[in-house]
């Protein structure tokens, strides 16, 4: 199956087989969407990703909410050209404002949320074409 591991400063996607023997000292637990793995002082959150059709791009197009919170302000409009790092909207959670930035260059093709709306983790926020 195809899995993606986040941790240690990187995200790594790999095609993998089921383990026959577990690494000694490895600790793992599943909470539904994620498996959490600790091995030799490092922790990864591993999720299952869809099999990639031949020729499809690696990156997904939607920018999703990395955490639950409230949209304070939307800083771009549909049709805007943005470059990687452009602030797209402000999200408030845990009493702090966080800037959501464009992961790459492109055009804003769709805005899913308006200022004042609550979002759950994983909700799509902005589509960059």
């Amino acid at each position: 199956m195809r899995l993606r591991a986040h941790g240690g400063g990187a995200t790594v996607t790999r095609e993998t087989d089921v383990a026959r023997d577990l690494l000694p000292g490895l600790l793992a637990v599943r909470d539904g969407r994620n498996v959490w793995v600790n091995y030799r002082g490092e922790t990864w959150r591993v999720e299952r990703v869809a099999e990639r059709p031949a020729g499809a791009p690696e990156e997904e197009h939607d920018l999703t909410a990395p955490m639950p919170g409230r949209v304070v302000k939307v800083l771009v409009s549909e049709g805007d050209q943005v470059t990687k790092g452009t602030a797209l909207l402000l999200l408030e959670a845990m009493k702090m404002e966080h800037e959501i930035r464009a992961p790459r260059d492109g055009a804003v093709t769709k805005l899913f949320r308006a200022a004042g709306e609550m979002v759950a983790m994983g909700d799509p926020l902005v589509e960059i074409g």
Binding site: M1, V12, A19, V35
Partner: peptide, 18 residues
């Protein structure tokens, strides 16, 4: 960066998903 996840990390996760 720290280090890349070992193959065994993916395999253990695969086992739990499966």
């Amino acid at each position: 960066l720290s280090r890349e996840p070992d193959d065994g990390v993916f395999q253990a996760a695969a086992r739990l998903f499966a």
